[in-house]
Design a protein around this nucleic acid. Structure first.
Length: 230
DNA sequence: GGCTGATCATAA
DNA sequence: TTATGATCAGCC
């Protein structure tokens, strides 16, 4: 008889080191191996299970499941990000950071914003993401604990302030993903009908697609490369 | 082929 | 509806 113990997620890690050790212990395993061990069904692809890899890693690392706007490991101040990479370790997708607040932004500053909070400390877990590799065969890579350095912080802050200014000024619908050097604003919605309130060009309330902040690939590529070349 | 804009599943 | 987890896929 199988013990149900193996189906339980571990307790949240006590500290950063313990979390990192857990992540290191997963590196080299395939998603199939990890999924089978906890009796998770492996989808044929991610088309209808886009968050599946992230959820699997959350389970193994003891992240609290939940949809609160805070870090995955709030107690120890760390955000978990799985990132799909090529065989060369190059990111294949942008990285979602958080929902962008489109109203009630008077007085919001960088020092207390969600973007800064989420990115203050990130555990990056690279996972093979090329679509020609069956999901079950994709391997977990070596994890990386990262905090933005002075240069990265400066760039993030600059983009954030520019984007937030446009949002406050009622220009959210004129923002494209081309704005921002390292941080971009793009739709983050269930579908085209899921609208949220924002500020229009004349300061009036409008309904528009929810937006999210994303890290551009060049930014994550550089931070991963910087680490793995050290 | 890469990127931007669109979309999928699920919980509360 | 808003938040979490993100990747899809058509257009340039």
């Amino acid at each position: 008889m199988r013990s149900r113990v193996y189906l339980l997620s571990p307790l949240p890690p006590c500290d950063e080191h313990q979390l990192f050790l857990r992540a290191q212990a997963l590196s080299g395993f395939t998603l199939g191996e990890l999924a089978r061990r906890i009796q998770w069904t492996i989808p044929a692809n991610l088309k209808k299970k886009k968050g599946w890899v992230g959820m699997l890693l959350e389970f193994y690392l003891g992240a609290k499941a939940g949809s609160k706007p805070e870090q995955d490991f709030a107690d120890i101040g760390i955000e978990l990000k799985t990132i799909p990479v090529s065989a060369q370790g190059v990111p294949l997708e942008t990285t979602f950071v958080c929902i962008a607040p489109l109203t009630g932004n008077s007085g919001v500053i960088w020092d207390s914003c969600h973007v800064r909070n989420k990115l203050s400390r990130v555990l990056w877990v690279p996972v093979e993401g090329e679509r020609h590799i069956p999901l079950a065969d994709r391997r977990i890579g070596a994890p990386l604990l990262w905090s933005p350095n002075a240069e990265e912080t400066k760039r993030l802050r600059h983009d954030w302030e520019e984007l937030m200014d446009l949002i406050v000024l009622g220009k959210v619908e004129s923002i494209t993903a081309r704005h921002g050097e390292v941080l971009q604003l793009r739709p983050k919605a269930a579908n085209r009908y899921a609208l949220t309130e924002a500020i229009g060009e004349k300061g009036q309330p409008i309904m528009t697609l929810p937006r999210g902040f994303y890290l551009k690939k060049a930014f994550t590529r550089e931070l991963l490369a910087r680490y793995f070349l050290l």
